[in-house]
Amino acid sequence: MARKLRFTIILRREEEGGYSAQCLELPGCISEGETREEALENIKEAIRGYLEAFPEEAEKLKEEKELVEIVV
């Protein structure tokens, strides 16, 4: 069984309604949905499509990384 990859998603409620979802590990991988659940399902689909189009990105994701939060 293939190892599952973990992704960090920024989920935002939009002023005009609905939600947007952005995957931090995959630049430009963004989706949306009317509900929180729909946005999360749509970003999963977008991630799968991104990795199909750019399979080399999956290998980069297996490398060690550090997530740092800063305040400016």
Results as ranks from 00 to 15, higher is better:
Glu16Lys: 06
Glu16Arg: 06
Gly17Leu: 01
Gly17Trp: 02
Gly18Trp: 14
Gly18Glu: 14
Gly18His: 12
Gly18Cys: 15
Tyr19Val: 01
Tyr19Asp: 00
Ser20His: 10
Ala21Asp: 03
Ala21Gln: 07
Gln22Gly: 02
Gln22Ser: 08
Gln22Leu: 03
Cys23Asn: 09
Cys23Thr: 10
Leu24Ile: 11
Leu24Glu: 02
Leu24Ser: 10
Glu25Lys: 02
Glu25Gln: 11
Leu26Ser: 03
Leu26Pro: 04
Leu26Val: 01
Pro27Ser: 00
Pro27Tyr: 00
Pro27Asn: 00
Pro27His: 00
Pro27Ala: 01
Pro27Val: 02
Gly28Cys: 05
Gly28Ser: 03
Cys29Glu: 11
Cys29Thr: 11
Cys29Gly: 10
Ile30Leu: 06
Ile30Val: 11
Ser31His: 05
Ser31Val: 12
Glu32Ala: 06
Glu32Thr: 07
Glu34Met: 02
Glu34Asn: 03
Glu34Lys: 10
Glu34Ser: 07
Thr35Trp: 01
Thr35Pro: 01
Thr35Phe: 05
Glu37Asn: 02
Glu38Thr: 04
Glu38Gln: 07
Glu38Lys: 08
Ala39Glu: 11
Ala39Met: 13
Leu40Arg: 12
Leu40Gln: 13
Leu40Cys: 06
Leu40Trp: 14
Glu41Arg: 12
Glu41Asn: 11
Asn42Gly: 13
Asn42Glu: 13
Asn42Trp: 13
Asn42Ile: 14
Asn42Gln: 15
Ile43Pro: 01
Ile43Thr: 12
Ile43Arg: 08
Ile43Trp: 03
Lys44Arg: 08
Lys44Phe: 03
Lys44Gly: 03
Lys44Glu: 06
Glu45Ile: 09
Glu45Met: 11
Ala46Trp: 03
Ala46Lys: 00
Ala46Ile: 09
Ala46Glu: 00
Ile47Met: 11
Ile47Ser: 07
Ile47Tyr: 07
Arg48Leu: 09
Gly49Glu: 12
Gly49Asn: 10
Tyr50Cys: 12
Tyr50Ile: 11
Tyr50Arg: 10
Tyr50Trp: 06
Tyr50Asp: 04
Glu52Phe: 03
Ala53Ser: 05
Ala53His: 07
Phe54His: 05
Pro55Phe: 12
Pro55Gln: 10
Glu56Gly: 07
Glu56Tyr: 10
Glu57Asn: 01
Glu59Lys: 00
Glu59Asp: 01
Glu59Cys: 02
Lys60Ser: 02
Lys60Cys: 09
Leu61Gln: 02
Leu61His: 07
Lys62Ala: 09
Lys62Pro: 01
Lys62Ile: 06
Lys62Glu: 08
Lys62Gln: 05
Lys62Ser: 07
Glu63Arg: 08
Glu63His: 09
Glu64Thr: 14
Glu66His: 12
Glu66Ser: 09
Glu66Cys: 07
Leu67His: 12
Val68Thr: 08
Glu69Thr: 15
Glu69Phe: 15
Glu69Asp: 13
Val71Ser: 15
Val72His: 09
Val72Asp: 10
Val72Leu: 10
